[in-house]
Design a protein around this nucleic acid. Sequence first.
DNA 1: GTAATAGTGAAGTGATTGCTTGACTATTCC
DNA 2: GGAATAGTCAAGCAATCACTTCACTATTAC
Lengths: 100, 100
Amino acid sequence: MSAAQVLDALGDPTRRAIVEQLSRGPCSVSALAEPLGITVTAVGQHLRVLEGSGVVASEKLGRTRTCRLEPAGLAAAERWIGNCRLLWESRLDRLGDLLD
Amino acid sequence: MSAAQVLDALGDPTRRAIVEQLSRGPCSVSALAEPLGITVTAVGQHLRVLEGSGVVASEKLGRTRTCRLEPAGLAAAERWIGNCRLLWESRLDRLGDLLD
DNA sequence: GTAATAGTGAAGTGATTGCTTGACTATTCC
DNA sequence: GGAATAGTCAAGCAATCACTTCACTATTAC
């Protein structure tokens, strides 16, 4: 669940659409595929990436797999981006202090 | 400077390394290329993507181009991820309330 | 002026990737 | 039992992508 894996996973528009859909609630594979206009096979491939990065979790009950968001995965990416931004902004702050 | 463009840009390990380097301070193109072990041409191509997404800004003085981080671009991606996560977490909270 | 430095542009290449089809394996419903 | 449903696996394909080399244009240094 490294930030690198998560950002790799979020670097694709279809996977972002899946994440957006899952943020509104758990979902089956075919329910994810339908609004995207792609096959369930394609969704399965994206899910493998999303699960591998820790952004999504799923479990199969009977013949349907239910997918849900894994907030900790998203949080890892948020921290990476936030850290870069804050590092830079603190530099800006120090520069501001120097100018005062 | 849409979140989609920023996440597309951050979906590549080399571009993330460039962002990490720039978070420690402004940098020339060749100074970015050296630790990465790639050509300045390759860095220039990545910079075009990063600038197009609003994560990086640069200006050319004389013959050297100085690149710096643009915090607003990173913030846009943070907001997108945070929004997905919070939407889902608030659902979890409501579920918790129901169970009480 | 000449030489070295910093970067840009065009073209090519090999690898990756997002997606499809077709065949197959459970599971549920009648 | 048989038919429909939900998903998985293996191959294959077209497009994108990250990177290179080579040629070229400023700018700076001697």
